[in-house]
Write a protein that binds this DNA or RNA. Structure first.
Length: 505
RNA sequence: GGCGUCUUCGUCUAGCGGCUAGGACACAUGCCUCUCACGCAUGGAACACGGGUUCGAUUCCCGUAGACGCUACCA
């Protein structure tokens, strides 16, 4: 096979919000495309009209915009292989369904859903396949003229794939190696429904991947059982030589308990399972999103990347570009990964610590405004810089730790543990002395204060910091005292000190 | 039920015949220290089970168990 340009795709169904597992699948596809200088396609698989949810497509697009994962072509991105929305490709699919029909690889089936249900009740483990299709109503069992009549009378039908039994079908998976499934356990899958003139996933998927020249199919493990069917379809079309390589990713599992990670788990345990907040148009239900919860997109991607893959070194924090360099699809783990959202918190924290204060400032500024505080962005950034290393996972958690920067203590609580311990008998006198010293400083910078206060404290044998903190903060929290007083400025610092002296004595 | 996949600390994982089984999250302790943090150090914690193969199995093979997935005119 000649070396083709790598092309991969992410092809969600617009049936609701984008699941976080889907985000990881998209991420791996993106990483793979980038590191091979290939292209990343965005396709919409909306062949089930009954499950279509308005707004879902735009939601998915917005999610990737926020995450910073760009597509090269597809819905809303353009490209030479469109249209990229399956509902707009009806005529294409019809042509290929006909090809299969004409070549005897597929057949018409007229069994109604009710008849099939009845059959499934009647026969245990009923499967529509080589062993049973002879007793069903289809173009293989019915006389040709009867089939003609049914068709011309407009009888509803489906087209089924004629699976030849008894063959070991091999799927060469980049992660799992050689997977073998005997064709006898495969059923004659429905490929096309006359009711809505749309194909099912299996047909549309194969036709599109072929026409869009997709070289690698990277998808969730839930597709592994149908991979042999897809192999058979490529062969039936005569496309075996350009069949894409497969990689089936391990699933994301519930943090506790068992089973696939679901929306319910997020609600139950209190973490988002969707990238953005989602308002379900049908139920009106609102689900939280990573963006609205205060996660940095870089943190989300980094966290997700390591759920099912790792670079083989101890490195855990890495940028998207680094991931592109380090990623190796063949080194993905095979077992499902429990979704450890607590570690996701840690990643967010790490990225907050890495980020420039000025970049973080707008998020905190928003919180400040909600609390009625408006200060220049430089002041906001300064506070973020002094406080972000405190025990926080989100910027919004800064507020209760930072309020005193902007709001002077109204009163002083003698019962506060820190106050009681640190505002001792000499505190008032010490603070009066310290206030006098500070008042005499022309330069109120951290360095200047530190030089003056440290030497005074040492000479006088004082430890003024904790009482001073009581005066400026009201309790035992906050940054380094010099940084705090420099931020507040001489006037405010002295005002708070005198108030504390006055109240606490 | 059938078919498939998987199985190392609580969790994410490294390991690709010989290691005191490594790292990270979480947890605990200590150090540092003007509070809280940060940082640093330390600690507890794992090869599902049973057979093989081999001088030697976490690693290879077989079986068992368990978990997960699929089994639609959904993707």
């Amino acid at each position: 096979m000649t070396q083709r340009k790598v092309r991969v795709r992410f092809a969600p169904s617009p049936t609701g919000a984008l699941h976080i597992g889907g985000v990881r699948t998209a991420l791996y596809n993106y990483l793979f495309a980038r590191q091979h200088g290939g292209e990343f396609i965005f396709r919409i698989e909306d062949t089930d009209s009954s499950r279509f949810v308005p707004g879902a497509e735009e939601y998915i697009l917005e999610s990737f915009r926020w995450l910073g994962i760009p597509f090269d072509e597809g819905v809303s991105f353009g490209g030479d292989h469109g249209p990229y929305r399956q509902s707009e490709r009806r005529d294409i699919y019809k042509k290929y369904v006909k090809q299969l029909l004409d070549s005897g690889k597929a057949y018409y089936a007229f069994d109604t859903p009710e008849e099939l249900d009845a059959k499934r009740k009647e026969v245990q483990n009923f499967q529509y396949d080589a062993s049973t299709r002879g007793m069903m109503r289809n173009s293989l069992s019915l006389p040709a003229d009867e089939v003609e009549r049914l068709l011309s009378e407009g009888e509803q039908y489906v087209v089924r794939f004629k699976v030849e039994p008894g063959e070991d079908v091999h799927v060469d998976d980049m992660i799992r190696g050689d997977v073998v499934i005997n064709s006898s356990i495969l059923d004659d899958k429905v490929l096309y429904k006359s009711a809505d003139e749309l194909p099912t996933y299996h047909l549309a998927n194969i036709v599109d991947d072929h026409l869009m020249e997709v070289t690698h199919v990277i998808r969730g493990e839930e597709w592994l059982p149908s991979a042999p069917l897809h192999v058979l379809l490529y062969r039936a079309f005569g496309w075996a030589d350009t069949m894409p390589a497969f990689a089936h990713l391990p699933l994301l599992l519930k943090p506790d308990g068992k089973g696939k990670l679901s929306k319910r788990d997020g609600d139950r345990l209190g973490f988002p399972v969707f990238p953005l907040e989602w308002h379900d148009p049908k139920t009106g239900e609102v689900s939280s999103g990573y963006r609205e919860s205060g996660y940095l997109p870089e943190a989300v991607l980094n966290f997700l990347a390591l759920l099912g893959w790792n670079p083989g070194t101890d490195q855990e924090i890495m940028s998207l570009d680094e991931m592109v360099q380090l990623f190796d699809i063949t080194k993905c783990s095979k077992a499902g990964a429990k979704f450890d959202y607590v570690k996701g918190l840690w990643f967010n924290r790490e990225y907050i610590l890495k980020k420039d204060d000025m970049e973080l400032a707008p998020a905190f500024d928003k919180i400040l405004r909600e609390n009625g505080i408006e200060v220049p962005m430089e002041r906001v950034a300064a506070v973020v810089g002094m406080m972000k290393m405190k025990k926080i996972n989100f910027i919004k958690e800064l507020w209760p730790l930072c309020d005193f920067f902007f709001i002077a203590p109204e009163t002083y609580d003698r019962e506060d543990k820190f106050v009681r311990k640190n505002w001792n008998a000499t505190a008032a006198a010490d603070m009066t002395e310290l206030a006098g010293l500070l008042e005499g400083l022309d330069d109120f910078s951290v360095e200047s204060q530190k030089a003056a206060v440290d030497s005074w404290a040492e000479a006088a044998g004082k430890k003024p910091w904790n009482p001073w903190r009581v005066a400026l903060v009201g309790t035992g929290k906050g940054p380094d005292m010099y940084e705090l007083s420099a931020f507040l400025g001489k006037e405010e610092t002295l005002r708070r000190m005198r108030k504390a002296i006055d109240i606490l004595k």
